[in-house]
Amino acid sequence: MMKGWGLTTYAVLFIAFVYGPVLILPLFSFNDSTFATFPLAGFTTRHYVEMWGQGPMIGALVNSLKIGLGVTLLTTAIAIPAAISITRFRFPGKPAILSMLMLPLVVPSIVLAVALLVIILKFLNIPLSLWTVAAGHVLIALPFCTSVLMSRLEGFDRSLEEASRDLGSPPLQTFWRVTFPLALPGIISSLLLGFIISFDEFVIAFFLTGTDNTLPVYLYSQLRFPNRLPGALALGSLILVVSTVLVIVSEIIRKRGVQSDNPGDF
C-alpha cells in the first residue's frame, strides 16, 4: 500500500469530497444573493428569516416532525422484540426471516413507493395522507432500527440474562432489570435514527402524501423555481443541522454504551 502519509492525505481528501458539496448549501444560504454563485456577495441571514415567514414551510416542518416522531416510536417498539427474538431465540428459518427484514435496504425506494401506492389506492381505496407516508417510513426504518438494536444486544454477554433468570427473575422481570438498561443506548440510538430516516426521506413521501407536504417534499417543490433557491438553501441547511446533531448524539450514546459494558475483558 501507499506510504503512511499518502493514505492520510487521501483520507483528508476523501472527507473533503464527501463534505464539500454538502457544505455548499449552508455556505450559500448565508450569501446575500438570489443566486448560488461565486464570488460571495456578503453575509446575510435574511434567507432564513424569509423562509421562516412562509406558512407552507412551517406546515411541512410540523408534518415532518409529527411523522418522524410517530414513525420512530412505532418502529423502535416493533424492532425491540424483533431484535431480541433474533439475537436470543433459536427457531427455524431465522436466516430467511432476517434477510426479509433487511430487504427494504436494497429494494429501490421507487419500487417500494409504487408498490405501496398501488395497494393503497387501487386495492384498499384509502386516500393518500400523512398516515400513508408514515406507514411507508415504518417499512424503511425497520431494518435500520432492528440492526442497531441487534448489534447492541449482541454486544453484551448472553449469560447476563441467564444469570438473572438463575437468580429468580422471570423473563419479563429479567427484561426490565437487565436487558432494557443494558440495551438502552441502542434503544436511544434506534429512536434517533428512526426519526432521521423519516425526517430526511423524500421518494416515498413524494409518492404517498396527499395534500400535505413533508419538509423534503416541500423542499423539492421549491427547487423548480429558480427564485426560491435561497429559501431552499436555507431550508436544506436547517435539515442538515438537525440530522447532523441527532446522528452525533446517537453515535456518542452508542459508543459510550459499548465501551463501558465490556469492562476488563480477559
Binding site: 454538502v22 455548499i24 432521521i196 430526511d200 427547487l223 431552499a232 438553501l233 436544506g236 435539515i239 442538515l240
Partner: peptide
Amino acid sequence: IPFWTSYLLRVFSWKV
C-alpha cells in the same frame, strides 16, 4: 454523518 444526511440534499448540493 454523511450516511445519515438527507439523500435529497446531497443530490441537491450537486445541482448547486
